[in-house]
């Protein structure tokens, strides 16, 4: 068995799992965080995307042991019961999620992009989302939603909201 301890959505958690457990299985089965989905299990579809140490990764391609000691952000850590994250707000307002299965992954890819770049070009957004497949063909609205989220986030940083916003579970 492999013992792992990691910070998930700001909370430290431990588990002892068989070595062949992926990070995705660890999150879904051990920690009951079912937001990340199993879509293709080979790193093509991006439904399992989570953010590890600030970078978007396919959690189906990472062993739980590799995530030991790291900081993991899942879709469950993006909002609080009080507030939606601006990305969630923008996706909701744009109607960018249809069946929703790809959604958690897309939102986290968008988060990883916007953490680095608050004013991404359409091409940069396309590049950041190219690892997230949507078969409902909703990409246009997703790109609009990311642009809208970027606008909301820029506004926020301009108004110097320095007080810690609880909904932004930055790892």
């Amino acid at each position: 068995m492999t013992d792992v301890t990691m910070t998930i959505n700001g909370q430290t958690r431990s588990a002892s799992v068989p070595p062949e457990t992926t990070l995705l299985q660890l999150l879904r089965e051990n920690f009951n965080l079912t937001g990340a989905k199993l879509g293709c299990d080979v790193g093509d579809c991006g439904a399992c995307t989570v953010i590890v140490d600030g970078q978007a990764v396919n959690s189906c391609l990472m062993l739980a042991g590799q995530a030991d000691g790291r900081q993991v952000l899942t879709i469950e850590g993006l909002a609080s019961r009080e507030h939606l994250h601006p990305i969630q707000k923008a996706f909701e307002n744009s109607g960018a999620l249809q069946c929703g299965f790809c959604g958690p992954g897309v939102l986290l890819s968008a988060k990883a992009l916007l953490d680095d770049n608050l004013d991404p070009s359409t091409q940069e957004i396309r590049d950041a989302l190219s690892g997230n497949l949507c078969r409902c063909t909703g990409y246009t609205k997703m790109i609009e939603a990311v642009q809208e989220a970027a606008r909301l986030l820029r506004e926020e940083s301009r108004t110097q909201l320095t007080h810690a916003r609880p909904e932004v579970a930055t790892p």
Binding site: G43, G46, T49, A56, N58, L61, S109, A112, A128, G131
Partner: peptide, 9 residues
């Protein structure tokens, strides 16, 4: 190569 998620790994 691949996409952002696979390039990060």
């Amino acid at each position: 190569i691949g996409a952002a998620q696979t390039r990060n790994l």
